[in-house]
Nucleic acid binder design. Sequence first.
DNA 1: CGATTCTTTGAAAACAGTCAATCTGTGTGG
DNA 2: CCACACAGATTGACTGTTTTCAAAGAATCG
Lengths: 189, 189
Amino acid sequence: MFEVLKNYIEKRVALTETELAGIKSVTTIKKLRKKQYLLQEGDVWSFHAFVAKGCLRTYTIDDKGLEHIIYFAIEDWWIGDRQSLLTGKPATFNIDAVEDSEVALINKPNFEKLCRDIPAFNRLVSEILEKSLAATQHRITATISYTAEQKYQQFLEKYPDFALRIPQHMIASYLGITPETLSRVRKRS
Amino acid sequence: MFEVLKNYIEKRVALTETELAGIKSVTTIKKLRKKQYLLQEGDVWSFHAFVAKGCLRTYTIDDKGLEHIIYFAIEDWWIGDRQSLLTGKPATFNIDAVEDSEVALINKPNFEKLCRDIPAFNRLVSEILEKSLAATQHRITATISYTAEQKYQQFLEKYPDFALRIPQHMIASYLGITPETLSRVRKRS
DNA sequence: CGATTCTTTGAAAACAGTCAATCTGTGTGG
DNA sequence: CCACACAGATTGACTGTTTTCAAAGAATCG
């Protein structure tokens, strides 16, 4: 399963075989069954996680016990709790598997060493960060400006793959609407 | 006004006088009067901008002509259109001054050179990115989970400084609610 | 199968948005 | 210095969307 991460990197930057071997040597593969936690609220998160197979979600649980999904990640996406990783404080997010999945994990010190030792890897990481931030800002635009219907439409256009494999009530949670509302929106169109 | 940026950097990382001088040599100061654009939708954005004085906002305008504020930046904050900066494509955001302001600008090639030449500067930049992303994710949580009242409460707690200097209708726009609703929320509490 | 889990549907209630009018404070020009 | 204009904030009545609660179907999994 390291192959998936290797392909991902090779498609984006040119690394030597030695450098790739260096990455492989610090990567652990973790298999997750559907619904299994990768991270539970309150634990400290200290990895960089790459999804090699399957689908995961990041979410919070509010006072009423309702889940709010912040983020989905499928193959070739990264996932984690950046706040916890950065500060070393307990995570406020939960991460679990939407489907049976496999993730490649690199712990914080090793990941930082890779960034220092391999400039191209460092650039790749910065670029991913940049893109994530831009995407997140655009998501905010959608969330504060669109109606339920527009939010769902935009979601379908932006992530056509997701709609097929993610349960509707989770998509509703991601969009910030109730499952009932999503069901009605879908019926209308 | 470069002093403000210098203080900001010195508070966070240790740089030599030469390195600081290198940063200064590629920094331009731009003064903006209230309502003046720093970036207009459709133009290409190619800077890293640091707010030395005043307050700016990033926003989009929808089909109905309504503004939706994505982001505020006051002293010691960075602002820009990352998507446009990254891709070189026309910006989808507008940025203008909420108050008379002064920003420190470093253009993209110079900024990248600084990142390459000064490792500590590079780390600072990555850290800022990380923090921005974490903050943005938490904002999404708020936007999809909270009622108008909770959104405003959280805004007050998180950015007490903002509330005093930013007009209410802009705060409403930032929270994704109408000015009327915000006015009623405030009255209730 | 049988039991969950997920989706759909209906009716009522809550919430936020719209439109229009009024009030308030600020700043400008006469 | 005053009067006026203007932008921003508030208020009221109404509309529309979304949520809530409850129940019934449909799909999925062990």
